[in-house]
Amino acid sequence: MGNELFGEYAAYVWPSYGLTLLVMVGLLAVSLTRLKRLKRDLRALEQAQGGRRRRRSAADADEEA
């Protein structure tokens, strides 16, 4: 390891590793953020539809009564 880490090629080596980190973390962040958002939207929509369905079946039951 030693001095070559900061030697004459450091200006080329470190940007390579930095960019690799950026690409991997970027892909991960974008994908996980989208997953989180989709799960939240799906839950909200399913809850709204479930609520509507419950209200409709309650109204049907009232009409029958």
């Binding site: 070559e4 880490l5 004459e8 390579s16």
Partner: peptide, 20 residues
């Protein structure tokens, strides 16, 4: 990648190989 020996011709620039 950071403990492997450097190349006798390329020097430490060979470390780019481990991601490239």
């Amino acid at each position: 990648a950071f403990t492997a020996p450097v190349d006798y011709q390329q020097g430490a620039s060979v470390r780019i190989m481990y991601v490239h």
